[in-house]
Design a protein around this nucleic acid. Sequence first.
DNA 1: TTGAAAGCGCTAACAG
DNA 2: CTGTTAGCGCTTTCAA
Lengths: 345, 345
Amino acid sequence: MVVTVQQIARETGLSQPTVSQVLNNKAQRYSADTRQRVLDTAERLGYRPNSAARSLLTGRFNCATLLMGSEYSHNMLSQGLLSGIHDELASNEMHLTLAKLPNELLTDEKYVPRLLREWTADGLLINFNAMIPPALIDLVRKYQLPSVWINSIHPADCVHPADLAGGRVATQKLLDAGHRKIGYVDYNYGFNDAVPPQHYSAVDRRAGYAQMMREMGLTAQFINAEVCLSNDQRLTHMREVLSQPDRPTAIVTVSITDAIHVYVAAQSLGLSLPKDLSLIAFDSEAAFGRHLNIDAMVVPEYQEGREAVRMLMAKIAKPDETVPACVIEMPYDSGGTIAPPAKPS
Amino acid sequence: MVVTVQQIARETGLSQPTVSQVLNNKAQRYSADTRQRVLDTAERLGYRPNSAARSLLTGRFNCATLLMGSEYSHNMLSQGLLSGIHDELASNEMHLTLAKLPNELLTDEKYVPRLLREWTADGLLINFNAMIPPALIDLVRKYQLPSVWINSIHPADCVHPADLAGGRVATQKLLDAGHRKIGYVDYNYGFNDAVPPQHYSAVDRRAGYAQMMREMGLTAQFINAEVCLSNDQRLTHMREVLSQPDRPTAIVTVSITDAIHVYVAAQSLGLSLPKDLSLIAFDSEAAFGRHLNIDAMVVPEYQEGREAVRMLMAKIAKPDETVPACVIEMPYDSGGTIAPPAKPS
DNA sequence: TTGAAAGCGCTAACAG
DNA sequence: CTGTTAGCGCTTTCAA
């Protein structure tokens, strides 16, 4: 059935450690003949090293676990982040296991997924976008595994985008084009019974916008609602906003969803972008330019993933040292939706 | 450092196997006192079983590997699929490792990721949406690991949505509402230099639409282009189509991206949905209703994931038996974009 | 240049 | 009820 080193040893008439040595490329000291014989039979039999046996011996799993929340809004596991994590792990000869933390943990503190109950990985990447349950933090500490927080702010050992700076830059782009009446759209903002609660990124992006406007002596105009609106309600609301005589000439949105609503509302009012309205959104790498071309501050997911793994590798090497928080700038990508305002205000 | 059964044995003065037995809940035959002592010290020391040691002994890794292409268009790893796979694995006390197959494999046949070179998982889930490289198929056969194909059609051991039936149902919905001039939009269709080549799903969805139209004695109207258009070009093209006097009164789109283009183009022409135009799209679970409310045939990703794992578990149990292909119906979800045509044609 | 011996952490068999 | 013995597949000494 499964081919072991032992079998190759028998087959070749060599000792089991000899085969092991040859297969691991160590010790060029073996005779060319022996080496060839071993490699040939290994190939012929389809030998594959048993990672469990090696782990047991080395004490390393060559594996990191990505821990995520189980609700869509909690994890938003993006293609880019996953790719970045995967690629950087791969370049360290490590692989990735996935653990979704079910809602049970949030309520029933007893529940812990097997991946965490057992000793399976060398490190932990924690991607909880919002509402990190305190039980999780305890668990991580108790688990004593090198870990890095992704997309959340901690004193150290974390990586996240520069959302505040992103908010500033987005606003700056519109200011540079000559806009003064700039609105900020986040239809998920503000209502307390929101599920999930606001993530820091939404708060920071908004704050970046507000800062920039204040510094320029301009009035911030927040466009949102007190309650959670449906897509259609948002479109209607947005149409109302854009129908006002003193409507904003440019808009920043916290997400691509909001941006699409602005885009569609504008179209239906006969406003064309960017001639009559400028628009810039925060967007993920994977979604950028996918549906519509919209200027965006792009969440640097891939780089985040790579950076997180680099930090994790450092922590695995020196478990007792903390790594300083890593804040990654958001690049700006043009989508052709920014132009000077029609009539200078 | 790392706590082992051995240490608990020393700590409690018991033998190492005794501790092991107690921890594994087997053998209630131990004295209550002993059991308590073991469990307490295990808890106190923060004991965690070493999965490698167990794997070595049992010959099972309690783990499945999800194999994906590394290009966006190749994998489209959706939230739903991942969740389904994860949850079904979890309910079998298994976990998930991820392996992205880099482009090297497509060209350099020598390259194989470590996860496949080594003996690490009990089974393989293969999610290659398009262009499965022949080398991969060989590799899978050579690897002799129980495996299930996701989102691709094979004689057996595969799970995929019923795209053809989906195309028929989508068209039927519009027919039922009274439409006769029904267009089909797929801007990625038709040009040969397309990257990636057409996935079967696009072909089947289109074929389902065409079948239905033919059966009703109606003329199919395919809306696409000979070359790959940008988002803006698609919008322009769509506007032209919808400006014709004999424009379709209803549209099926192969993807949500195309649907958004139709939606926006319609809005900009002053056509409101569903009054002036009905629209139904194929959409993923994760994206449904996310940006805009649009009627959709929803790709049953979560269920696919669960089904794939169920099949895999069966194959792991009986590696020599094949499992019949599993085709999953696509549910229809209303988004409020279907209504009878304005003037009955 | 190769083989023998030991042991990683754990479970399963059997003996007491 | 509990301890002893053995061994999973592999790597790492160390001896020959």
